Simulated assay, not measured.
Amino acid sequence: MKDTRKLVMMGLFVAMALVLHIVEKNIPIPFMPPRAKLGISNIITLTVLMSLGFKDALYVLVVRIILGSIFGGAISGIIYSISGGILSLLMMELTRKLGRENVSVIGISVIGAVFHNVGQLLAAAFVINNMNIFIYFPVLFLVSVGTGIFVGLTTRYLLSYLNVNNGL
């Protein structure tokens, strides 16, 4: 029974992340640089990372990216999403493990947002075979700090309402 409950929870997390991803894609944000997003679906990824762990968060992330690319009609962009998402998740997990006592969920979120952009820029540099794309990094860095704080605050608020100690 416990396996069925976890499977249902994972399905719900994927569905929530996918809905947030699709909603965000359709919300114009005038003050954001081109192609930059708030990353609100990362609220779910970070919630799963903090409550269930890395493997479950990786599952939610990858399934959300694949389905989001299919439903969003941007299959070609999957390389950017996967590279940014996986690097982001790896760095959030590393920060969570190493900074257990000193780094809050907000700090972990900011690290994730920054490295998501690094991963996407690395993928773009590989695709176009030109590292000059990193000229865009300072702008993305500033945006990612703000969006990381927003996602971290929202996740902290969400986690306070979940029963994290009992596996949700």
Score class of each variant (00 low, 15 high):
E93N: 14
V143Q: 04
I128S: 09
L159V: 04
L121W: 06
H21L: 14
M50I: 07
P33S: 07
N117D: 06
T4R: 08
I75S: 10
I65E: 04
I75A: 13
L38T: 12
L61V: 03
K25F: 14
N26L: 13
F54D: 07
N26W: 07
M9I: 11
V151L: 12
F13Y: 15
L12E: 09
V145G: 01
N132R: 11
L168C: 08
I40Y: 00
S160F: 00
F115P: 02
I66W: 08
F31V: 15
G99T: 00
T155H: 07
F13T: 12
L94E: 02
P28N: 09
R5G: 04
I43C: 10
L89Y: 02
F126V: 13
T45I: 15
F137C: 03
K6R: 13
I29A: 10
F141H: 03
F126A: 14
V63L: 12
L87A: 07
V118Y: 09
V105G: 07
I135S: 13
L52H: 06
R96S: 11
K25L: 15
G73T: 03
S160W: 02
L58E: 06
Y161R: 12
A36N: 12
S83P: 05
S51H: 09
V164H: 00
V114T: 09
G73N: 03
V14D: 01
S144W: 01
M9E: 13
L90I: 13
V114H: 07
S144E: 03
L46P: 08
G148S: 01
V105F: 00
S144N: 03
K2L: 12
I135L: 14
A36H: 09
A15Q: 10
L58W: 01
T4A: 14
S88D: 08
I66F: 14
M50P: 04
P28W: 10
N166L: 14
S88A: 09
P33H: 02
K97V: 10
Q120W: 11
M10F: 13
L87F: 14
G53I: 03
S51M: 09
V63Y: 09
G167Y: 14
G77P: 00
G146A: 11
L158Q: 00
N166I: 10
A113G: 09
N102D: 04
L140G: 03
R5C: 04
M16F: 13
L142N: 05
L89H: 05
P30C: 06
G73L: 03
L159R: 05
M131R: 09
N102H: 15
Y59E: 15
I22K: 12
